[in-house]
Computed example of a mutant assay.
Amino acid sequence: MTCTASQATTHVLYLHGFRSSPRSMKAMKMAERIQRDHPQVRWWCPALPPSPRQAFELIAQGTADWPRARMAVIGSSLGGFYATRLALETGCRAVLLNPAVDPARDLARHIGEQTAWHDPNERFFFRPEYVDELRALACGTLPHPERVLAIVAKGDEVLDWREMVARYPGARLKLLEGGDHALSDFDAHLDDILAHLQLI
Rank of each mutant, 00 (worst) to 15 (best):
residue 7 Q to F: 08
residue 102 D to R: 14
residue 62 G to S: 14
residue 154 K to F: 12
residue 9 T to L: 02
residue 118 H to Y: 15
residue 182 A to L: 13
residue 190 L to A: 10
residue 182 A to T: 12
residue 82 Y to S: 01
residue 24 S to Q: 04
residue 124 F to Y: 05
residue 152 V to M: 02
residue 169 P to Q: 10
residue 65 D to W: 12
residue 52 P to V: 00
residue 150 A to M: 11
residue 96 L to A: 05
residue 193 I to Y: 03
residue 139 C to Q: 02
residue 111 I to Q: 10
residue 187 D to F: 00
residue 75 G to C: 04
residue 9 T to W: 04
residue 171 A to D: 10
residue 151 I to T: 02
residue 118 H to K: 02
residue 162 R to A: 10
residue 175 L to W: 11
residue 103 P to R: 00
residue 15 L to G: 04
residue 39 P to Y: 07
residue 33 R to V: 10
residue 196 H to T: 12
residue 150 A to D: 08
residue 81 F to N: 00
residue 124 F to I: 05
residue 163 E to S: 15
residue 156 D to N: 03
residue 185 D to G: 09
residue 175 L to D: 11
residue 29 K to N: 08
residue 79 G to E: 09
residue 3 C to L: 13
residue 183 L to K: 13
residue 39 P to H: 11
residue 139 C to A: 13
residue 3 C to Q: 12
residue 175 L to H: 05
residue 32 E to M: 13
residue 57 E to M: 09
residue 32 E to R: 13
residue 68 R to M: 10
residue 33 R to N: 07
residue 2 T to K: 14
residue 34 I to F: 03
residue 190 L to T: 06
residue 187 D to R: 07
residue 157 E to A: 09
residue 160 D to N: 11
residue 117 W to G: 10
residue 68 R to G: 12
residue 100 A to V: 03
residue 119 D to H: 01
residue 145 P to W: 04
residue 53 R to D: 15
residue 125 F to C: 13
residue 188 A to N: 11
residue 75 G to A: 00
residue 107 L to A: 08
residue 40 Q to P: 11
residue 41 V to T: 13
residue 150 A to K: 12
residue 148 V to Q: 05
residue 111 I to F: 04
residue 167 R to W: 08
residue 91 G to P: 01
residue 147 R to Q: 12
residue 64 A to Q: 13
residue 121 N to E: 15
residue 196 H to Q: 15
residue 19 R to L: 03
residue 152 V to F: 07
residue 174 K to G: 12
residue 97 L to K: 05
residue 90 T to E: 08
residue 59 I to M: 02
residue 110 H to S: 12
residue 101 V to M: 01
residue 101 V to Y: 02
residue 133 E to I: 06
residue 153 A to H: 13
residue 186 F to V: 06
residue 173 L to Q: 15
residue 16 H to G: 06
residue 127 R to S: 13
residue 47 A to T: 14
residue 102 D to G: 12
residue 66 W to A: 02
residue 173 L to K: 14
residue 98 N to Y: 10
residue 129 E to L: 00
residue 85 R to Y: 10
residue 27 A to K: 06
residue 109 R to K: 10
residue 106 D to M: 04
residue 160 D to R: 04
residue 109 R to E: 15
residue 142 L to C: 01
residue 36 R to F: 09
residue 135 R to Q: 13
residue 132 D to Y: 11
residue 20 S to L: 03
residue 1 M to K: 13
residue 28 M to Y: 03
residue 22 P to M: 07
residue 134 L to R: 06
residue 191 D to Q: 14
residue 200 I to E: 14
residue 84 T to K: 15
